[in-house]
Design a protein around this nucleic acid. Structure first.
Length: 193
DNA sequence: TAGGCCATCTGGTCCT
DNA sequence: AGGACCAGATGGCCTA
């Protein structure tokens, strides 16, 4: 679970009803997959978590607007057991999603050179270094291609075209969709300049 | 011990 | 309808 290899985390509170109803015949252990120790419920700092999260998340896409959003989807009235199952499935999917994200971060770490090899880069460090690395490479490539231009060709035109060609080659080799997206951006950039 | 970083849970919206 | 995505909350581990 925790990739740091430290002691397994056991204090995560599994999903439970904030307002426990009498009929909660849990056959499935709430924390079945990797948590144990189901505490009474999610009672945090003197208030219910659900209450805490009520109405102050009005920004951003997934952000919220939970309380007064007229377009809010009607809650389906599933049984507690059903909701528990769905919640656990959601948790599992979210975990997998985050693992994939972390794998991508790891791949990025390995792709960028950095000085302190013994220390693992944090996520924010990885992103920052990657940004700088891309900028440096771009500068170098543009410099190289403008150094040997065919006569009559403007530097930006030619270098952008070269860049495009280079990425197209990568695209053919790797077949990555993310690359093609970037390719489009490069292309529009080259047309602008 | 405080602060940084992280994994996980959670409930909301968005998308298919 | 259900999965993906997102951001806030929380608590554990580690280091200065």
């Amino acid at each position: 679970m925790k990739s740091k290899g430290k002691a397994a985390k056991s204090s995560r509170k599994p999903w439970t009803e904030p307002d426990p109803e009498p009929e909660t015949s849990d056959t499935s252990e709430p924390g079945s997959s990797e948590q144990e120790g189901s505490e009474a419920s999610v009672h945090i700092g003197g208030s219910w978590r659900g209450v805490l999260r009520g109405g102050d998340r009005e920004q951003g896409r997934g952000g919220g607007g939970a309380t007064h959003n007229p377009h809010r989807r009607q809650r389906s009235h599933n049984s507690n057991k059903e909701r528990n199952v769905r919640r656990l499935e959601s948790n599992e999917r979210e975990r997998q999603r985050m693992h994939k994200l972390n794998n991508a971060f790891q791949a990025l770490r390995e792709a960028i050179p950095h000085v302190k090899m013994e220390k693992k880069l944090s996520k924010i460090e990885t992103l920052t270094l990657a940004e700088n690395y891309i900028k440096s490479l771009t500068t170098i490539i543009l410099g190289m291609s403008s150094a040997r231009l065919p006569p009559g060709e403007t530097p930006t035109e030619a270098s952008a075209a070269r860049l495009l060609q280079c990425y197209q080659q990568h695209l053919e080799e790797d077949g990555e969709e993310s690359l093609s997206q970037f390719l489009t951006q490069i292309h529009s950039f080259s047309q602008e300049s």
